[in-house]
């Protein structure tokens, strides 16, 4: 599964650390998701989408 978290972070001028703190996870988890090493749970995926104010399908692309 691919994702566009890095793009949305850049658009919102957010660091991985700041986003991780907002979502209550570690920075390493955000990094692992961005690099495609870890697929987040449905709950975390919804949190990410809700944080950026977009739909989940705009951030996560299932391939």
């Amino acid at each position: 599964m691919k994702n566009r978290i890095k793009v949305f972070r850049a658009m919102n001028d957010l660091t991985q650390e700041a986003l991780a703190n907002e979502l209550g996870v570690t920075r390493q988890t955000i990094l692992a998701i961005e690099k495609g090493k870890y697929d987040p749970s449905l709950e975390l995926a919804f949190k990410i989408a809700r944080y950026f104010g977009v739909g989940m399908d705009e951030i996560f692309i299932y391939e």
Partner: peptide
């Protein structure tokens, strides 16, 4: 390692 514990990037 599999779940990206020691991955690095520009940050």
């Amino acid at each position: 390692r599999k779940y990206g514990e020691w991955e690095t990037d520009e940050e």
